[in-house]
Simulated scan of single mutants.
Amino acid sequence: MKIQVNAVGLDQPVEVIACDIDKVIPALTYTITVSDGRSISKDLCEEHGGYLEDLLEELEVQGSEPEPAPAKAAPAKKAPAKKAPAKKTAAPAEAPAKKTPSRRRPRITSLEEIEAAKKG
């Protein structure tokens, strides 16, 4: 459960998560999804979420990770086509081709420089 709290020195309220059972702060949000599509989400404090933490630790010790929930909202997009790698050919022992310089900008000239060029 999210609770808005007015913190001292702040103009805007701050949202904190409290336990759904006894309203203790802080709490963590636990979401359990079953393969048949059912899902439940609960905010639990350390005391009430302890059994879930024990279960998570047990699963981590066994080395198994929970499977991610299948995405149902958007169909999978195709990956872009992969390009074939360029064939490397033996290049002569010349210097690598010079990279063409980027386009040069015109020189900015002041009125004084233009007048001096006319006289000179």
Rank of each mutant, 00 (worst) to 15 (best):
K2Q: 08
I3W: 01
Q4L: 14
V8R: 13
V8T: 12
V8F: 12
G9V: 03
G9F: 04
L10E: 15
D11G: 15
V14C: 06
V14W: 02
V16T: 04
D20P: 04
D20Y: 00
I21G: 02
D22A: 07
V24L: 11
V24Y: 05
V24A: 13
V24D: 01
I25F: 07
Y30D: 02
Y30C: 00
T31W: 04
T31P: 00
I32L: 15
T33C: 10
T33W: 04
D36I: 05
G37I: 03
G37H: 05
R38P: 00
R38H: 09
R38W: 04
S39L: 10
S41C: 12
S41V: 11
K42A: 12
D43E: 11
D43L: 02
L44G: 01
C45I: 02
E46D: 15
E46S: 14
E46G: 11
E47A: 15
E47V: 13
E47N: 14
G49W: 00
G50N: 15
Y51L: 13
Y51F: 14
Y51H: 15
L52Q: 02
E53Q: 06
D54E: 15
D54G: 03
L56P: 00
L56V: 12
E57C: 06
E58M: 13
E60K: 14
E60M: 07
V61Y: 10
Q62C: 01
G63R: 00
G63W: 02
S64D: 07
E65K: 13
E65S: 10
E65T: 08
P68R: 05
A69D: 04
A69H: 02
K72E: 13
K72R: 14
A73R: 09
A73S: 12
A73W: 00
P75T: 09
K77M: 10
K77P: 00
K78T: 07
K83C: 03
A84N: 11
A84Y: 01
A84L: 13
P85Y: 02
P85A: 12
P85I: 07
A86K: 15
A86V: 09
A86Q: 12
A86E: 08
K88T: 04
P92W: 07
P92E: 15
E94Q: 11
P96S: 15
K98T: 06
K98R: 09
T100D: 06
T100P: 03
S102H: 10
R103D: 11
R104I: 09
R105T: 09
P106Y: 10
R107Y: 09
R107E: 14
T109F: 14
T109L: 13
L111P: 14
L111H: 12
L111N: 09
E113G: 02
E113L: 03
I114Y: 09
E115W: 05
A116H: 06
K118L: 11
K119A: 15
K119W: 05
K119T: 10
G120H: 06
G120L: 09
G120A: 10
G120M: 05
